[in-house]
Structure formats: structure tokens, C-alpha cells
Design a protein around this nucleic acid. Structure first.
Lengths: 236, 236
DNA sequence: AAGATTATTGCTTTATTAGCAAATCGTCAA
DNA sequence: TTGACGATTTGCTAATAAAGCAATAATCTT
């Protein structure tokens, strides 16, 4: 992550934090809730949220709460298009057909993985492609594969003082990540996952009872082939 | 659109403008370009962009330019999931199968339509579902359907002093929108389109040489059925 | 309907931001 | 390889925007 400018814009930092907080909620959220969650003064939060609502990034509901606004899907669409990740869908669909296992592609950010593709065995592809779910990184094979790319220091900064879903301690998590880092893939909870892009921290993987430390050598080549196919279409 | 707070946050307003400018570009963009485009002073833009880069919303490239950052797909995923629009894919795929025409779903924001689904006749659905393209609203049937929901004043504010793609004047555009508004659907360039959601300004439609003013009554019921199916899954 | 809770406004003080000039960096041509 | 040029970034100071407190308005609960 790049360094801040020598004179950072403090309003913008907290503005983005408030935006991210509202967008992470499944329901519209009030000023007071955001203020409590982020440890900011309520008047300030009100002004930030209302400013964001006027800009279209948030929507002000009839109950005086805030929810995602119409400008966000546009930014989302532009970014998806510019990043080219949508082109990974073809290879992911092929992989799912080959293996008929849980097949997934996701992006890591902080402590979450956003799933762009997630298909259960025999699942209709229309629901697999567009599910768009966000999960804690530590309960996701993809998340573990991507967290393994971070330094131990970064991971500690992310998780110190927090409960870690799926792990009973930070050293336990760091051990797991260390192993994944060493091998170049993550094998975690019957999931095999590899990183395909470091800029957006993207990973692909699949899960099945058949996936274990013993069967990795059988499945890894197929996953690496899928990665290569994705990279080929990304750079075409 | 909601009113600004009595004390708006000015840094946040211009911060969001800069973010939107960078995200709307197909290539990484420099400080000076953004400053020129938005009429802002370069030092200020540098501080804004760098602050956004440190927050993960933008990425600072090795050429000292700025591009979308890893935090955006996460916000995108959260919003898509919360809005539930991904569930519209099933009905859209059915519609495409029925008609085998260009079939699309998109969202309006300012003067652009973001396509979440866009399938040509006989197109493989994997490329239709994830194309994520953004087009000028006035060259899009969906865009026209959605612009027709705005007041004439809003449309004038959007387009005054600008070239209007596909129209030779603002009064020409306003006339077209007036007709669409009156009928409850847009018929434009062989495209039939209807609005399905006013919060995010979403529309669905299809295009074909067969679609004209004369054949509307033949095709409109199928489109309205698709709308109902989408609304049903959105509210399930 | 009344009271409690939450959001929003007005005002004053404070801290952040803006802009100018200088320094640094990256690219290109000779 | 070196120097010139254009773009980005930094440092400093002045100005203005933002922050916070108390009061007001709106919504929710009983």
C-alpha cells in the first residue's frame, strides 16, 4: 500500500471509512450507529453521510438512515470492466464443469473475501456467476491463500485484538499462513486455492471432501491450468 | 437526490469527484490530467489521489499514475449483494432464451448506463452476464427509459452546454423523453425498454430489427412479465 | 398523546486545507 | 550518458473549512 501524501486529506480518510461502513451493512444504518462503530462524533458523521448521500454514493432512506446509493454500482461496473476480471468467468465455468466441485473466485481486501464466482456442485451457472457475497477471509480457502501473500506484520496489524473466525489465536493463523506461503497454494478445510493476481489480490480455488493434503498433487495442475487460462484472457 | 447537510464536507465532495474521474478511465491517469478535467489545482488533486491510494480505493502505479484500487471491488460486491440485483440474472437469461434478441439490464447514473447484463443473439451467457460495460445514456434504450423518469429540469441540468450523443439538440432529447414518459416504456432505435427500479434507476430491455412502434404491443407483455419475475425474486 | 431517543442545525473556535514556490522525479532527445 | 523539460511532490504560511457543543426538530415506543 502506498504511503499517504505529506499532507493527507483527513476529511477524505474518514469519509471513505464512513462510506465503507455503510456499504458493509446488510440494512440501512443510522448516523449514531456509524459514529459508535467508528468512534467518531455524531455531528461529523451526519455531515459526512449526508454529503455522500448528496453525491449519490449513499442513499438517504425515509427512516433517516443511510444505504448504498445509485453511484456505487456504476463505479463497480467501471472497475470490473477496467480490471477485466469478468473475463475470468469462462475459465471458471470450464473448471466447474470438469470437477463439479464447489468452485470459486474471490478478491481479498482487509479481512474479507468478495466472491465474484461461487458455484456449488450441479449449481445453475446463472446463480453461480452473480452471487456476489462477502465472507471473512479466515474461513475461506481463497482468503487463506491470499492472506499468505501478506507479511506476518501486515496480518498481525489486521487481526491483533480481534477474534479470528476459524482460528483460536493469531499464532495459529500465522502458522497456517506460513505453510501456505511456503507451498505456493493453500489447502484449508478441504479447499485448494491459489492466488492469480496480486494487484487486486485475487484467488481461485475449489472445495470437496476429496480435496486433502494427500490429493493436492492430483488437483493442483488443473487449478494452475485454470489460472493460466485466466491470465491469458486478461492479457489478450 | 437528497439535499446537502447545512455544513457540507467540501473535501469529501471533491474527493469523490476525483475518485469517480479515475474510476471512469480505461487507463491509469496522472494528477495533472485529473486536475485539468475537473478544474482543480494540481497540489490539491495530488493530495486527494494519494490519500485515496493509501486507503485502497485507488492504486498508485509505477508510472506515478492512478488506477482503481483493491477496495473498490469489495464495495462493489457488497452493494451488488445488498441490492439483490444479481438475482435478476435468472429472469434475464430466460428472456434472452425466449426472444434470442439483444437483451440487457442496466443502471443509470448521471449521463451513463452501466450494463450488468448484455447478451447478443446466440451469445454465450458466460460473456453476457459479466461484461460490465458503461455507455452514454442517450444512445441506449435503457438509458432513454430511465432518463424519462427524471424531470425535464434534471435532464436539462445534466445535458445543458454538452453534446448529446444520438441527439442533435436538448429539445429533441426532451421530446423523446416526454413520449417515453407518457407511454410508460421507451421505444428507441429498435429497442424496447422499461424501468424496473427507481432507487437504483434500473431498466431492462431488448433490441431487434423486429422491434418498432408497431410491434410494441406484441413484445411489451413479455418484458413486463420479466420485470415482475425480477421484482418477485428481489422481494422474496 | 407523551416521553425518550436519534438526527440535524446554528454558532464559535480550532485545526485542517489550499495554494504558491521550490524541490524531486521520470522521460525523452541529442 | 547527459541535460532539458514536464509532471509530481514537498514545505510553508495564510485562509477557510471542519469540528464540537448545545439547542432544535423528527421519529419511535409505550
Amino acid at each position: 500500500m502506498v504511503a499517504l501524501p505529506k499532507q493527507p486529506n483527513k476529511s477524505l480518510i474518514d469519509g471513505i471509512r464512513c462510506l465503507q461502513e455503510v456499504l458493509s451493512r446488510a440494512e440501512p444504518v443510522g448516523v449514531g450507529q456509524v459514529a459508535t462503530e467508528l468512534g467518531l462524533e455524531t455531528t461529523r458523521v451526519h455531515r459526512i453521510l449526508r454529503t455522500l448521500a448528496a453525491s449519490g454514493m449513499l442513499r438517504w432512506t425515509d427512516k433517516r438512515k443511510y444505504a448504498p446509493g445509485p453511484a456505487v454500482p456504476v463505479l463497480a461496473t467501471q472497475t470490473m470492466h477496467a480490471s477485466g476480471f469478468y473475463r475470468a468467468i469462462g475459465p471458471m465455468v470450464e473448471l466447474h464443469k470438469d470437477l463439479n466441485m464447489i468452485t470459486a473466485m474471490g478478491l481479498l481486501w482487509n479481512r474479507s473475501v468478495s466472491y465474484l464466482f461461487h458455484a456449488e456442485p450441479d449449481q445453475a451457472l446463472t446463480s453461480a456467476i452473480g452471487s456476489f457475497d462477502v465472507w471473512p477471509a479466515t474461513v475461506s480457502g481463497l482468503g487463506v491463500a491470499l492472506l499468505a501473500l501478506q507479511t506476518d506484520q501486515t496480518v498481525e496489524e489486521l487481526y491483533v485484538g480481534r477474534e479470528i473466525p476459524g482460528f483460536n489465536s493469531l499464532p495459529h493463523l500465522l502458522d497456517t499462513l506460513s505453510e501456505a506461503r511456503e507451498r505456493g497454494y493453500a489447502i484449508h478445510h478441504n479447499t485448494l486455492a491459489i492466488c492469480i493476481d496480486e494487484t487486486f489480490q485475487a484467488a481461485i480455488g475449489f472445495s470437496s471432501q476429496k480435496v486433502s493434503v494427500k490429493s493436492v498433487s492430483k488437483y493442483l495442475p488443473r487449478l494452475l491450468k485454470c489460472k493460466q487460462e485466466i491470465l491469458d484472457v486478461l492479457h489478450a
